[in-house]
Write a protein that binds this DNA or RNA. Sequence first.
DNA 1: AGTCATGGTTGTATTTTGCAACCATTTAGT
DNA 2: ACTAAATGGTTGCAAAATACAACCATGACT
Lengths: 162, 162
Amino acid sequence: MIGAMEDVRRDDVRRDDVRRDEAVRGLEHEIGRLLRRVRRGLTDRAAQVDPELNATAYPLLATLAEFGPHRASDLADMFALDKGAVSRVVHQLLELDLIERTPDPKDGRASILSVTSKAQARLALMVEARREEFGARLSGWEPEKIDELAQGLARFNAVISD
Amino acid sequence: MIGAMEDVRRDDVRRDDVRRDEAVRGLEHEIGRLLRRVRRGLTDRAAQVDPELNATAYPLLATLAEFGPHRASDLADMFALDKGAVSRVVHQLLELDLIERTPDPKDGRASILSVTSKAQARLALMVEARREEFGARLSGWEPEKIDELAQGLARFNAVISD
DNA sequence: AGTCATGGTTGTATTTTGCAACCATTTAGT
DNA sequence: ACTAAATGGTTGCAAAATACAACCATGACT
């Protein structure tokens, strides 16, 4: 009797697993769409901030803007990029006056990279342009629904991140 | 009187807009995290399918696997990639026996690209490995919640696409 | 002090990309 | 039906991005 009950419970768990797998498949599907879409828009947004910016430099800059000052090696880690490549991109961004570098007081080897006010202004303009572009489309969405989606993604991010 | 009432209503709309802006900012924050994370894992997954696969060829292959056969120019559009670049990647994938090409019956110029059974098997193995990796972490999530997130993303994708 | 790890720069070879020219085929205009 | 323009695809070429390794300076650990 008890054995049969355990079988039923195990079947329930299995069925739940299958449904979860399907749900995850659907989620990955949407993430893929999002990824492709963002990838398409990346070059445009980068150009909007500065015509000289390429598809690698822009995400680095955006990361510094969003998460605050970081070291070059942090960026290399975040993007799984060669530190040599990061070094060159950093020099480009310095040349464009989009980031600035200050010595790390805690570590004589390192420098802290932060966005300049120029970059902040450019990014703000870009965000504003995007907001106007999407404003009409998003107007049908209640802020609560958007929050809900953001929170769901946050949970998902937490789950999949080490 | 009526003028005052309209002012109040307009104020409500403005306040809603501000809240929506904040919500969108939060959403973009999470999307950024997600994309960075996915980007980091991309190379690994590509290598899991085939060691020769680079970070560009894999998304193309995955797209063919998910959305079915497409023409090279479709892929170029989807990824905003130069058609020359796509052409070369396609040849690599053909060489690796991961995709196959058949003439388009509707258009003498075009070819239809589709994944081979070999690629399907490799992709299935990769998905399985990922599922095992995330299985434990996702086990705390009810399938309904995952579906909810996927549907939210789907709506968002629909909103921001063309 | 001595060894090793880490942050960063630079040289070099390889890969990837974008642009343009080109061919074959299809579509549009008249 | 005939020409002109557009589209799918390949290839050559030059510019760019990247990985890899060597290297220097600093810091951490023993």
